[in-house]
């Protein structure tokens, strides 16, 4: 059964992704070129007005979609590539290997993700590929923990026992029988990881330590607009709404697959 929550989430994602892919076609202005009207009010020319450098806010929001989606999906892929194998191995082999896995996961889960991401981004230098790697690295433990928990249950199932009785090798059992049964939880967590990667990346940019200018990025736009909040509230609230909307879309999808 498809829940209304899932549909709402998918609707948001399709809208956002459409806006991002079509940005070069539908954006009325160049998102980086500066104009002559600074802090302009919304007009038929600049739908959401212009920022302090005269750039069109609406076009920047459209292009900002690309930045967010690239970082969000990239980070989720990195987190999945690290977290799933570790979770599978720890949960299936148990024993000493599992102990090491659990120790590692516990160590990371207790740490403040944002603070870790701040240090690592500063270390590697703020750029979109580095942010993607850092956020993926910060988020793999949650993925690993969920997969491990799922595997601990599946490995006791009768069909796994049957596979073992057939004389199957461990690698074959994990690949053919265990992994397919974790796909549901992995895809749910994938969507949630996308949402939290976008959340964290926007926070880093808001702090001035994320995506470097002049790349159109929602978090950086909120930061720039924040100083003009009393004068031009749209300058920070519009990109903030875009990022919130995107996070919500992926969170809704992830949390409705989970159930």
């Amino acid at each position: 059964m498809v829940s209304s929550r899932l549909l709402l989430g998918l609707g948001i994602i399709v809208t956002i992704a459409g806006a991002g892919i079509l940005a070069p076609l539908i954006a009325p202005h160049d998102p980086i070129r500066t104009g002559s009207v600074f802090l302009g009010l919304p007009t038929s020319e600049n739908w959401l007005g212009t920022d302090d450098l005269g750039r069109d806010i609406f076009s920047r929001i459209l292009y900002g979609t690309q930045t967010s989606l690239v970082i969000g999906f990239g980070a989720a892929i990195v987190a999945t590539l690290i977290g799933v194998p570790i979770g599978l191995v720890g949960g299936y082999l148990r024993g000493k290997t599992d102990l090491v896995v659990v120790q590692m996961i516990d160590l990371f889960v207790a740490l403040p993700g944002l603070v870790l991401a701040l240090i690592l981004t500063a270390m590697l230098g703020p750029s979109i590929p580095n942010l993607t790697l850092v956020l993926g690295f910060v988020m793999w433990p949650t993925m690993a923990r969920l997969v491990r928990g799922q595997v601990l249950q599946i490995r006791e199932a009768v069909f796994v026992e049957a596979a073992r009785a057939l004389g199957g090798r461990d690698s074959w059992i994990v690949y053919e029988h265990i992994w397919p049964n974790t796909i549901r939880i992995v895809s749910a967590q994938f969507a949630i990881t996308v949402s939290f990667a976008i959340f964290t990346s926007a926070s880093l940019s808001f702090l001035g330590l994320g995506v470097p200018p002049p790349t159109p990025d929602w978090g950086s736009m909120v930061r720039e607009g924040f100083q003009f909040l009393a004068l031009r509230p749209l300058m920070s609230i519009a990109p903030g709404a875009a990022v919130t909307f995107t996070i919500l879309g992926f969170y809704l999808v992830g949390s409705s697959i989970e159930r």
Binding site: A202, L229, S236, I237, T244
Partner: peptide
Amino acid sequence: TVPNFMIGIC
């Protein structure tokens, strides 16, 4: 889902 900075700014 609403980032803290967004809540704060609003």
